[in-house]
Design a protein around this nucleic acid. Sequence first.
DNA 1: TATTTTTGTTAGACTAATCTAACTTTTTAG
DNA 2: CTAAAAAGTTAGATTAGTCTAACAAAAATA
Lengths: 216, 216
Amino acid sequence: MTLTEENYLKAMFHLSAESVEVSVLDLSKNLSIKMPTVNSMAKKLAAKGLVIYEKYKPLTLTKEGKKAAGLIIRKHRLVEMFLVQKMGFAWDQVHEIAEQVEHIKSQIFFDRIDELLDFPKVDPHGSPIPDKFGAVLHQNYVKLEQCILNQKVVFKAVDSSQDSFLKLIDKLNLKLGDNIQVLDIQEYDKSMKVSVNDTFEIVLSQMVTSNILVQS
Amino acid sequence: MTLTEENYLKAMFHLSAESVEVSVLDLSKNLSIKMPTVNSMAKKLAAKGLVIYEKYKPLTLTKEGKKAAGLIIRKHRLVEMFLVQKMGFAWDQVHEIAEQVEHIKSQIFFDRIDELLDFPKVDPHGSPIPDKFGAVLHQNYVKLEQCILNQKVVFKAVDSSQDSFLKLIDKLNLKLGDNIQVLDIQEYDKSMKVSVNDTFEIVLSQMVTSNILVQS
DNA sequence: TATTTTTGTTAGACTAATCTAACTTTTTAG
DNA sequence: CTAAAAAGTTAGATTAGTCTAACAAAAATA
Ligand SMILES: [Mn+2]
Ligand SMILES: [Mn+2]
Ligand SMILES: [Mn+2]
Ligand SMILES: [Mn+2]
């Protein structure tokens, strides 16, 4: 499989987290690749048995395709964890590097990373690392955005890898595992005031709360 | 620069260690790519100012080209060192992986590797790591093959990355830094009997002695 | 339902990297 | 010094991945 094909599969996997089916337009936007190009790649992946393609219908990953995508995401997340835990990178520096390293062809390389990290289950952003068969343990996290007044939750993961977002979280002194309570929600812009570990209070815009994943 | 271009430059750099000028045929053999392909790539690299190309003449790297190649080789060797020193790989496992990782686009990634290794000067095979400007400190090593009877030398580097060769060196219990004395040279096949650290004696074929680099 | 907008597809072109077949130049050997 | 061999080049084809322009179908809206 080529690097390009791997990136398409990975994008489809991420997009189908919600809706299972993925439109050509969504993929196109997500990859910043024009629709006709996506269309022809979809046919190519279908010919390889990784995608179900029917004219004018949304795309679906086959079982095979899901597994392949899961294995690439596994490598991506293992690499991110290694970069943070073993090489001292900040969580906002690792996504771009992992985006490239995930395509290295070497089983032992990733096995060794896994071993050195003692077989981690999540990456530095709280996302689950798929197992050796490409299967992802589904997390039942919700967006902080959807929480109600006074609800108490735990900050479990982030839903964006944009470095400006991650840097903001750092600046706000928020960390995975923190206890968050919703103190106030502004009707107008959906911004939230929350308390963190009962020690300090911050205000978060909806753009931020929609990328914070929490568990009750 | 593309991965492919980087690999051509690197190959040229290696081949021009001896003769400065590189024939299209040599490059073709070295890369396992047919001559017409090499020819057109040579023109392309010439257009970018990295190679001097004149019809029917051998190829030469420009100053720019040499620097670019040196920087890729730097990455390759830093990665090999990291894989051995920090990730526990054997010296015969790292070349293939480094061949891929050397193309990662991320300055900080390689800078951090350099730092974690405490700015190493040689890779696990004894080859010098080019500096940040792509310049290589030239080593004055000779092949064990060329040594004379009774000469005492130090094993400094290997001249092949083939894993079967490296495994053989391991099996023979030879290590970089070992003191070697030439005890006997067979007229017929140029095989050598040598003593190692004055503790044991082994016989090496010419194929082996031609890939062992030593210093007096 | 009819029209407009959105989404998806086809056709055709382009670049990078590769190949084979045919031809030319240079080098080597008789 | 010529003929043969080796090395290098050109031409033309192929595959992967991308694009724009034009067209078609599906979905949304009036
Ligand atoms: Mn990531
Ligand atoms: Mn990627
Ligand atoms: Mn190497
Ligand atoms: Mn390489």
